[in-house]
């Protein structure tokens, strides 16, 4: 320091960048954001929509972007109801969804999936768009979006498009978004009751060994079952769904659907659980999630009840 020539210090600063060094850009319009994305080369820019997952990659030096594009100033932190559908702006913190009484009442499965992501501090940063865009195989939210048949509104240099969530997800950590495209919002169509169940070693700040999303929707097939925690990405299990034929399946049908789900799911063994334990969990949690969903169905009117 004082016993070193000053030039040496200046040179050091130029030569050695700190391990995490990038330019943070915060455009205030979607057009500005898309322009920045279009101008950047591959790997030069990373999109920040909360950052709870991105910061991990930066910290571990798995990526080394020149720029980090924050979506924090875009006007996408909204939540609104349109014709019974819930439209969630992609940068709305999960905590806002969790605290909304209508979300909890009308989409209990979504609320359950959100409520147990990380911790309250993390949910104050994390966003639905970020979660979807990162496309993690261990996401707790993606299975629920799949079960709801959510649609994703994407904006990019060629305008806006809308796709079912299943088409947006490709494989672990990969979506079908173009390099200059962004998720503007997620649209959750009107649905009947739903439930999300998970198993973790610990309830808070842990990663689900398995996540099970179930939704009952007005159109056929009525029952939607999606699983998370599997490879390469969360997916619907139509084989298990097909077992459930009525709004009030018998216990036998529930068990059959759960067994079918456990049989069809593609799992791997890793440090969080073995493949056989994950299969066991699916068999239990699918049955319980269907059961919970049934319990959330509107009660039959007392008059009808009397005639049975």
């Amino acid at each position: 320091m004082s016993d070193r020539p000053p030039q040496r210090k200046a040179i050091n600063r130029l030569l050695v960048e700190p391990s995490v060094s990038f330019q943070l850009v915060r455009p205030s319009t979607p057009e500005g954001a898309i322009r920045l994305l279009s101008q950047a080369g591959a790997g030069e820019i990373a999109v920040l929509a909360g950052g709870t997952d991105l910061s991990w990659d930066l910290d571990q030096a798995r990526i080394a972007p020149i720029q980090v594009l924050s979506l924090g100033k875009l006007p996408w932190k909204y939540l609104r109801w349109e014709n019974g559908s819930l439209v969630v702006g992609s940068t709305l913190p999960l905590r806002a969804l969790e605290l909304d009484p209508h979300v909890k009442r009308r989409l209990p499965g979504l609320w359950e999936a959100i409520r147990d992501v990380g911790s309250p501090a993390l949910r104050s940063r994390a966003t639905l768009g970020g979660n979807l865009g990162r496309c993690s195989p261990v996401s707790d939210l993606i299975p629920m979006l799949l079960a709801f048949d959510a649609r994703v509104r994407i904006v990019g240099p060629n305008g806006a498009r809308e796709h079912p969530v299943d088409m947006v997800l490709q494989e672990s950590r990969r979506t079908s978004l173009g390099p200059a495209e962004l998720i503007e919002s997620v649209i959750l169509p009107a649905s009947g009751p739903s439930a999300y169940l998970w198993q973790r070693v610990q309830p808070v700040n842990d990663i689900s060994q398995v996540g099970v999303a179930v939704a009952f929707v007005p159109e056929r097939p009525h029952w939607h079952i999606a699983l998370g925690g599997l490879q390469p990405r969360a997916r619907r299990l139509s084989e298990a769904e097909a077992v459930l034929r009525s709004a009030r399946p018998t216990r036998f049908e529930m068990e059959l659907a759960a067994q079918e789900a456990a049989r069809r799911a593609e799992f791997v063994s890793d440090k969080r659980a073995t493949e056989s334990y994950r299969r066991r969990l699916v068999a239990v949690l699918v049955r319980r999630a269907i059961q919970t969903t049934v319990e959330r169905m509107p009660k039959p009117s007392p008059a009808r009840k009397g005639t049975r």
């Binding site: 911790s119 070693v201 610990q202 309830p203 808070v204 700040n205 842990d206 990663i207 440090k271 969080r272």
Partner: peptide, 10 residues
């Protein structure tokens, strides 16, 4: 994350 200390909910 994967070395799991008890959390307050435990």
């Amino acid at each position: 994350l994967d070395y799991r200390l008890p959390r307050i909910r435990d």
